[in-house]
Design a protein around this nucleic acid. Structure first.
Lengths: 203, 203, 203, 203
DNA sequence: TATGAATGAGAGTTCATTCAT
DNA sequence: GATGAATGAACTCTCATTCAT
């Protein structure tokens, strides 16, 4: 039972992870019980423990999954390059999170962040997801500095952190107020980036 | 020791809240047990339940306390007014959170945010703390627009949200990496604000 | 401070017992807390523990109080004597319990009975209250047998138990259904006694 | 051991109820702890909570079980009918409770009564058990009145209550004094019924 | 004498995890 | 491989009782 079993295994993992995502987004990691996840996945506890050694492992699997989504944006941004690449990356990332359908994703994200503060294992996983985007931004900033689009005194890594912070704050605020004005937020963020670039051009 | 003063009562509340803050920052709301809080406060369960009807109430009391800290910064910023007020408010707020001693405060803050996503009561409390700073920023932006320091097409409320997002992302990142480069982050954020203002002046 | 203190002591005891009666009748012995009794008595725990060594002692004091009420009926019944004395005693006892105002007394009585099953101390007290009425009935029956009013084959002690049982069942049923038809019950019970006597006369 | 039969399920319920009956009869509802019941049932807390949502539910299940025992007596009594049916019902019911082996049952019964005073849910259940016997008695009395065996001025429902009261008082007294003279009590009660009937015949 | 804040053992209940079937 | 009944440690919260004031 080799190949079929592997596919089956993978299918079960997905089924469990999806159920867990639904439960965790709804109730948080601690209030969601394994029984809740079993019910949501329509699986028995035994079946779940065959695929994950415990509740924490499911949390970790979810934390591990969170990145990778932006890989596509990053590739596209790097192709464009420079300040325009920055803009592409920024607005693509924002838009991917702003959709109402992403409400669950945002709620879950905040849970993962809080857990990452407490649990080094989770933190490692989460940072494995946040580091690449920051590096992409830093690289784009460096490119823009080399081409004269941006001032040299900007710290590329710090810009990476600042842009990440904007995303994070945005996700958090939307998790609290799903109806918050998303467009104005994005536009304002873009204006700030543009200002940095435009003033350079204006010199 | 009967008939104690209100001061004593208030002192006990502080003692419990401080103990709870320590426990929650260390282990999170859900992993910290009432026994942990009792041990930390060197008080018995009964003593704690005399002052709070349950664990949730302590969480709420803590969430309720989180704001008010910025009140001083806000007052100062409004006195200065305009883009300079914005700068004062921004750097004061950042600096107040960047100190290593605030590590616990940052960790706890992230816990509260996650809880606010799940618990409407906590959310209400948290937003009662985030709304005034956002409003102060919006007011300073409007002043700056009236005096011509900032472009009219900036949405003042959105700027409030963007600045709040910067703080939040900053706290989160520092909660994960207490050694992250704080100065560069702050400088970059200030550069962005300056850019908005400078380009206006440059026109 | 001799006499004044004694009166005061006794007054406090009454105050506490009355409060406890109210609480126990409302919630039962186990659900009523010492705090409830304190609140009802408008006294502090310390004050109560000065007069009673513990909750059980209050229960015992109450169980101890329950009898004595019928002493007057018993005296009157013995004066009348014979079957008529039986009738006097029966209807006086019933009537004293049937009044709506005695609802609390009935509820409390049932609590005490249940406790008496579990607690030998309480049981002793309760039986100290039930034995004399049974003995009075037995004595009246013996009188009636001697005067020929009742058949000799009646067991006087058993009649005492039967009459006590009628009271107890009546109290219980009324504790469950305060609106139960009391008059019909009493009349039926009297008819049964009368039948015993009448048939004797009829011979 | 998954997917067990309904029989197994029912068996566990019995096991738990039996353990609870033993504990409650010994210590009362409030002093018997869930741990006691677990120990008596040789089951873990979790196993019990799979079958009952809480301690109260076990109490209710027990209160609900108490009736039904008399169903057989009632059927037999109704077959016989009239005053003889009354006698059959009475002595069968008494004898079923008088056996020393029923000591536990009597103790538990008194606990349930006390609880029924406080808890409407239990009361409803208990009265669902006491109403049918009362109604059977009332029906037999009516039959006896129609056939001239009993006087028309007897209130059939009140006779039902009186007979129930006799049982209840008897159970209570025996719960207090397991060695009380049962035979004499029953004989006296029968004499009272007989007297009512005999005097009618004698007219 | 009275107060009431404080104690702390222990209550009912939950839930991550196991394992016989 | 899947099931789900069972486990039992650990949780939050209660409340009879004490004792410094």
């Amino acid at each position: 039972m080799p190949k079929v079993s592997d596919e089956h295994m993978e299918g079960r993992r997905r089924q469990i992870i999806d159920a867990a995502i639904a439960c965790f987004a709804r109730d948080g990691f601690h209030r969601a019980t394994m029984q809740d996840i079993c019910a949501e996945a329509r699986l028995s506890p035994g079946a779940i423990y065959r695929h994950f050694p415990g509740k924490d492992a499911i949390v970790e699997a979810i934390a591990d999954e969170r990145h990778a989504r932006e890989a596509e944006f990053m590739r596209a941004a790097l192709e464009v390059g420079g300040v325009d690449g920055l803009r592409v990356f920024g607005s693509a990332s924002f838009r991917s999170l702003a959709a109402p359908a992403e409400k669950r994703r945002r709620r879950l994200g905040v849970q993962v962040w809080a857990e990452a503060v407490l649990n080094p294992e989770i933190r490692k996983l989460v940072m494995r997801g946040t580091k690449p985007p920051r590096d992409v931004v830093a690289r784009l900033v460096r490119e823009a500095q080399e081409s004269g689009e941006l001032a040299d005194d900007l710290d590329p890594d710090a810009v990476g952190r600042v842009m990440l912070a904007l995303f994070q704050g945005f996700i958090l605020q939307q998790a609290w107020e799903p109806g918050a004005d998303v467009t104005a937020f994005l536009e304002t963020a873009e204006l700030m980036v543009d200002a940095l670039a435009r003033e350079r051009v204006a010199e």
